[in-house]
């Protein structure tokens, strides 16, 4: 069995291009739109403020015309080595759903770079704290029910 945690995705790739180039392809909206969307989808980069605290938002459109928006906030923008951002799919009303976290590192490697993506559900203390509060509220309700 793999040692990866059950609730995270780790991917690594050796790409024959320098970290600087890959980093630039990630934080330039025109370039990002060229590679981010799965085949058969078009993507509009609505917002891309590549600085810590900056927002990002992409809209994906499939062949059937249906759109899905995904958005988040940049946590770390450290060219050309490291990017970290939150990630949440939006519902029909544009409300962000469950927030997950992505960290990308661009390590130099012989002949290019070794970009590594880590996508997991709970990276930030803030996100964890929110969920802990959620649990605390549930426990309070449970305690009231039990005591009532």
């Amino acid at each position: 069995m793999s040692k990866a945690a059950v609730d995270e995705v780790r991917l690594e790739r050796l790409i024959p291009a320098p970290p600087e180039q890959l980093f630039a392809l990630w934080v330039d909206p025109v370039q990002l739109a060229k590679w981010w969307a799965p085949d058969g989808h078009e993507m509009e980069v609505v917002t891309l403020e590549a600085s810590p605290g900056g927002r990002w938002r992409n809209i994906l459109r499939g062949a059937d015309g249906g759109g899905m928006a995904v958005s988040g906030v940049f946590r770390v923008v450290d060219p050309p080595r490291r990017l970290a951002f939150s990630w949440a799919w939006e519902d029909e009303r544009g409300e962000p759903g469950h927030e997950t976290e992505v960290t990308v590192t661009f390590e130099p490697a012989p002949g290019g770079a070794r970009p590594a993506v880590l996508h997991h559900r709970f990276a930030t203390p803030a996100g964890r704290a929110r969920h802990d509060r959620g649990w605390a509220a549930s426990l309070d309700r449970l305690a009231r029910l039990a005591g009532g």
């Binding site: 790409i15 890959l22 392809l25 590679w35 970009p115």
Partner: peptide, 9 residues
């Protein structure tokens, strides 16, 4: 996405 990033680079 990494496939497409590599192709674009």
């Amino acid at each position: 996405a990494l496939d497409r990033l590599e192709a674009l680079a």
